[in-house]
Nucleic acid binder design. Structure first.
Lengths: 91, 91, 91, 91
DNA sequence: TCGCCTGATAGTTGCC
DNA sequence: GGCAACTATCAGGCGA
């Protein structure tokens, strides 16, 4: 149990604090989101429906990305890689 | 179903987009946190222990806040509000 | 859709009923708790304060357990497992 | 702040402990329920669907009770109270 | 690497 | 009607 309070301890402390700081930021954002929902609600929009909308849009995005990946794989298989992609440069 | 594409629609769209933007930011932060854990791990720190440390620190904070709240509630119940608090001044 | 009303159906029905029975019991307990709060209130104790006390006690318990877990994890990480623990004996 | 550690303190302590005891029991039941779900799952039943079944059955029960209450109210309004009920005995 | 399982988060419900 | 507890869902980590 060397290094209690030593340089390793300092390093660990630093990691812990960085994470705590980031989690704080994350919480702030969550609060902001809640706030937007509240504002929307007081403008007459149903939060429940809004959540559904968000979920659907998210799924659509995921689906689209899936499609893109599929297309890319397919083109690659045909040796027709899309030049707009940015793959590993050829050594 | 008035207002399809009208001002209300614009407003809703705006709310949705603000939320989507915030959720993106939140995701970025989550990624950052994961990165810090990875960095700590490759420096020889056990992520499992780190998580427990974080949890304990969080609980300590929460407990302290809860204690403060209890004291305040108790004083209020006795009609002995703590003058160091800053409630709305009585008109 | 084989087995409609068959043995699988019987088994499912049994699971469902066991759960429903347990949920009933749970509800009974919740009612009991509410009753105790009511009784305490009519004895002059503030339920709000009681809830905070309960919360703090719970947090204290949780924190103590978490501390124990941390110590154990830490010792394990150092290859110094606590002999007072009772792991599977090494056959 | 009289009675610190006095009879009122004892009474409060008793209430707190009764509640803690009940909450423990409640937790035990919750664990049992989780166990049944697990068992059902390992028998090939989808917990998600089971939850839906439970929800529907619950709604049906609530609905039926609602119906019963409505019927009773209606009969009472007609002076035709259902003799199978057990209302306040007529003094 | 896959499946499990715990812990985190979002949604719902009930209390104040 | 707002707030807080509880529950259900989900994702990430862990072990086999």
């Amino acid at each position: 149990m060397a290094d209690v309070g030593g340089v390793a301890g300092e390093r660990l402390r630093s990691f812990i604090q960085r994470i705590e700081r980031l989690e704080e930021e994350k919480k702030t954002i969550s609060d902001d989101i809640r706030e937007v929902f509240a504002e929307a609600k007081s403008s007459g929009f149903d939060p429940k429906i809004m959540r559904q909308v968000l979920k659907i849009r998210k799924m659509e995005t995921a689906e689209r990305q899936e499609m893109d990946a599929l297309l890319e794989t397919y083109l690659a298989a045909l040796g027709m890689a899309d030049p707009t992609d940015d793959p590993e440069p050829p050594g």
